[in-house]
Amino acid sequence: MVTTFFTVIFIGKMLDMTPPITIYDSHFSVKETIDRIEHTLRERGVTVFARIDHCRGARQAGLDMQEEELLIFGNPEIGTNLMLENPAIGIELPLKILAWSDKSCTKVAHHKLESLTEEYGIRQSEAVISNMAASLRTIVTSAISKPITTREESL
């Protein structure tokens, strides 16, 4: 009975829920989009912890899927301070950006970070999350919309 009750509530929430993510269109391939975002993150001194190629993993399992890559990144100092306010927010950290191949273009998505303040009761660091959200939007939009110049090209 408890399992049935939980399932009904869970499915009900799934049906009512709009995922708290922001989605962008990129005219670059999935690989180039993630390359550009990774480059922009590293330029800003953000730690890139991992890059996961879901398509490669699918192929290794004998399956076929569209191109899809996940970038995991963050700033340990900022993340630690958020987790000191509420340890449960650690499930959301480090941050992630996902890019996948769609019929017409590459899609890029990340969580809407503003929703974290309400979900985790973050009050002391609300401005920090707001700044993180603005920075994340800037990083993605700049990476997918402008040429990236390397040091060698700018000399």
Rank of each mutant, 00 (worst) to 15 (best):
T3E: 04
F6R: 14
T7R: 07
T7L: 12
V8K: 07
I9V: 12
I11L: 13
I11K: 03
I11R: 04
M14P: 02
L15G: 02
L15Y: 03
M17L: 08
M17T: 08
M17G: 01
T18S: 08
T18E: 15
P20S: 11
P20R: 06
I21M: 06
I23L: 09
Y24N: 00
Y24S: 00
H27L: 12
F28N: 10
S29L: 01
S29M: 03
V30E: 01
K31F: 06
E32G: 04
I34S: 02
I34T: 12
H39S: 05
T40I: 03
T40W: 02
G45I: 11
G45C: 08
T47K: 03
V48Y: 11
F49L: 13
A50V: 05
I52F: 08
D53I: 00
H54Q: 13
C55N: 14
R56F: 12
R56L: 15
A58S: 14
Q60L: 15
Q60M: 15
A61E: 11
A61Y: 01
A61K: 12
A61V: 02
A61I: 01
G62F: 14
L63R: 12
M65R: 13
Q66F: 05
Q66D: 14
Q66C: 05
E68Y: 05
E69W: 03
L70Y: 04
L70W: 01
I72C: 08
F73T: 02
F73A: 08
N75L: 04
N75H: 05
I78T: 13
G79R: 03
T80F: 09
N81L: 14
M83S: 07
M83L: 09
M83E: 01
L84M: 11
L84Y: 09
E85H: 07
A88T: 12
G90S: 00
E92V: 03
L93F: 03
L93M: 01
P94T: 06
A99N: 02
A99H: 03
A99Q: 01
W100T: 06
W100E: 11
S101I: 04
S104M: 02
C105R: 14
C105N: 15
T106Q: 08
H111W: 11
K112P: 01
L113R: 05
E114Y: 05
L116R: 04
T117H: 14
T117A: 15
E119A: 11
E119L: 09
G121S: 08
I122W: 00
R123S: 04
R123M: 06
R123D: 08
S125D: 05
S125Q: 10
E126L: 06
E126R: 12
V128I: 15
V128M: 14
V128A: 09
I129M: 10
I129L: 12
I129T: 06
S130Y: 05
N131Q: 12
N131Y: 07
A133Q: 13
A134P: 02
S135P: 00
R137M: 03
I139R: 00
S142R: 09
S142Y: 05
S145H: 13
I148G: 00
I148Q: 11
T149G: 05
T149M: 13
R151M: 13
L155A: 07
L155S: 01
